[in-house]
């Protein structure tokens, strides 16, 4: 994109504003260096940079700028994400340390800055590369440990999540988002109907990550270093987080390993229980796996809608539109019992 003068101008302006934002908080002698952008995420633009002090020290930081600002957004506002990061970081859940929140004076839109955590997030590398063999052997166990600790947090500390639609009724929240795109997907309707008919008994609300899965975890050769992407956090049934973690789409072609295509449910359950997690209701987890497929299909509808409407034109988002039927296929095969 070097030849696009508009993009270059926008990037130069953003970098200048980021420098100003840093200097407002760390002093006029602070500078930034080694800027790099990560892939466009579902709701955020991620910019990595070094915060350089006058003594020659450098601290690698990450700017997360909100990119999805449309009605029916399934994502928490950045200020809520930041509050949540502060809460869970304080409790000791492995997350990037929150550094500062953007404000109006920064001119960078809504977002925040956290410390960079080094490691790998790409599922296929985590699943196959030799250097992660030790991390793989502990993956499901660590997922169980982290989720048990997260679910043990007193949800009153995150009471600002009470009004998130997913905290009230997750199926209704998905249905409302799906309806907002005004597209007909009979398989999604069938999935929503099945969820409606087979809904499990409601459980006490806990703090949920909402997007805890292979792909949102930073892993190094020692194991999980950080849990990313808290924009879908809400209050609800802990089985939801477990079901989402095990949803077939996050097994990345390794279906016999339900925990992110890497680990087993038995490994996960042992760690979840031994760290204080409640009894796992596997029937409810299955319902949440079906819910996960419906939700993932609707999120792909959202990305395709953003591309088609021109609000978020992007090649991968266009590809999401043609990925919907693949998720629907997994959904149908799961409903028929052909897939677990």
């Amino acid at each position: 994109m070097e030849g696009d003068p508009d993009l270059n101008l926008a990037e130069t302006q953003r970098n200048r504003r980021l420098l100003d934002a840093v200097r407002r908080r760390f002093g006029e002698r602070a500078s930034i260096d080694n800027l790099d952008s990560a892939m466009l995420g579902g709701s955020n633009r991620t910019i990595l940079f070094d915060l350089c002090g006058q003594d020659g020290s450098a601290r690698r930081l990450v700017l997360r700028q909100e990119t999805y600002e449309l009605p029916q957004s399934p994502f928490l506002a950045p200020n809520q994400q930041f509050r949540l990061l502060e809460l869970v970081h304080h409790i000791g859940i492995p997350v990037p340390k929150p550094v500062f929140e953007l404000d109006d004076a920064d001119g960078l839109g809504r977002g925040y800055v956290v410390e960079c955590v080094y490691g790998e997030t790409l599922p296929k590398r985590l699943m196959n590369d030799l250097e992660f063999s030790s991390a793989r052997s502990r993956f499901a166990t660590e997922c169980g440990e982290i989720l048990a600790r997260l679910h043990a947090i007193d949800p009153t500390g995150a009471s600002f999540l009470v009004n998130v639609p997913d905290s009230k009724d997750p199926v209704a929240a998905q249905t409302a988002r799906y309806d907002s795109y005004s597209e007909a997907y009979p398989a999604i309707e069938l999935g929503l109907r099945w969820l409606h008919i087979h809904r499990p008994q409601p459980r006490k609300n806990h703090l949920l990550h909402g997007d805890f899965r292979n792909g949102n975890l930073i892993v190094d050769r020692r194991g999980i270093r950080a849990v990313l992407d808290w924009e879908c956090a809400h209050l609800g049934d802990p089985m939801e987080d477990i079901g989402w973690l095990c949803t077939r789409s996050w097994r990345f072609g390794n279906p016999e390993r339900p925990v992110g295509g890497i680990g087993t449910k038995g490994e996960f359950a042992a760690a979840y229980h031994s760290n204080g997690g409640a009894q796992i209701d596997w029937e409810a987890v299955h319902w949440w796996e079906v819910f996960g497929l419906v939700r993932w299909a609707i999120l792909n509808v959202m990305q395709a809608h953003g591309h088609i409407s021109g609000q978020r034109r992007d090649i991968p988002f266009a590809a999401c539109g043609r990925n919907i039927c693949v998720i629907e296929y997994d959904l149908m095969m799961t409903l028929s019992g052909d897939y677990d």
Partner: peptide, 19 residues
């Protein structure tokens, strides 16, 4: 279910037949 499955498999045949 069979009707919708036919619709879905037709779409997958175009998008990702390997799936």
């Amino acid at each position: 279910f069979d009707l919708v499955m036919t619709h879905v498999t037709n779409n997958v045949m175009v998008s990702r037949p390997d799936k």
